[in-house]
Simulated assay, not measured.
Amino acid sequence: MKSIRKISISILILSFLILGCSEKTTVKINMEALGNELIEKVGFEDELNKVNDINTINMLYDIKDAKNTILYISSGATAEEIGIFEFENEDLAKEGLQKAKQRIENQKVNFDGYMPLEIKKLDDAIVKRIDNYVVLCVVDDNEAEKIINKYAN
C-alpha cells in the first residue's frame, strides 16, 4: 500500500514539474522605456524624431496590424531609425518581422550609390522578434543590441 502511495505522489510531482516547465511565459516590453533608453544611450549621428502619424508608419513599414508602435526616424541624411512594434500574437509578430526586414531592404535601395556608409549600417541593422514584439534599430553602435537584449529578458 505504501509503495502505491509513493508511486502516486511521484507521478503527481512529475506531472507538476512537466506542466510547470512547459508553460510559456510571454515577455512584456516597456516600449516607451526601450525607445527612450536607445535615444539617450546610443550614439546616433543624426537627430531622430518620433513619428506619431499612423499613416506615415504604415507607408514606411506596411505594418497595419500592430497593437502599439514606437517609431523614430532620422532627417533622411542617415538611415538611422528605431522601430518597436507590439502584436497580438506571435504569428502577427512573425509577419511584422518580415515587413521590418523589407523596410531595411527598401532603405538599402534608397541609399545605394550615394551613401555607402549608410549601407553598412543597414547591413548591420538589428531586426529581431521577441515573442509578440519586433524591434528594429539602425545605428553604428554596439550599445543598441545590449540595451535591446536587456529588455528581452
Rank of each mutant, 00 (worst) to 15 (best):
S75W: 07
L38K: 02
D53V: 15
V138D: 00
M59V: 08
D141R: 04
D112P: 02
I7N: 09
G20V: 06
L92Y: 12
V51E: 10
G35Q: 02
N149T: 15
V51C: 10
S22N: 14
S15T: 14
A33L: 13
L71D: 00
I18Q: 07
F87N: 00
K2E: 14
Q107P: 01
V139H: 08
S8R: 07
E81S: 04
C21L: 10
K50Y: 10
E23R: 06
K64L: 12
K121F: 07
K99H: 09
L117W: 08
N110V: 07
Q102T: 12
I70Q: 01
K94S: 14
Y72V: 09
F44G: 01
Y114R: 12
R103V: 00
L34I: 09
N89W: 12
D62V: 03
F111K: 05
A93W: 04
N89R: 15
E37L: 07
A93Q: 00
E40C: 07
V27H: 04
V109N: 11
I73Y: 00
D123R: 00
G83K: 05
Q102A: 10
R103C: 02
D140F: 05
E118A: 03
L34D: 00
A100T: 04
A100N: 04
I84A: 04
N52H: 13
I63T: 02
E45M: 12
K146I: 07
F16T: 10
C137Y: 03
N110M: 01
K28R: 13
R5G: 01
I18C: 10
N132D: 14
M31W: 07
I104D: 05
G35R: 02
Q98E: 11
F16V: 13
L48C: 09
E143F: 09
I9N: 14
E40Y: 08
L122S: 00
D46G: 03
K50G: 02
T26F: 07
N52I: 10
I70E: 06
L117D: 12
C137H: 00
I29R: 02
E37M: 08
A144G: 08
V42G: 00
I57W: 04
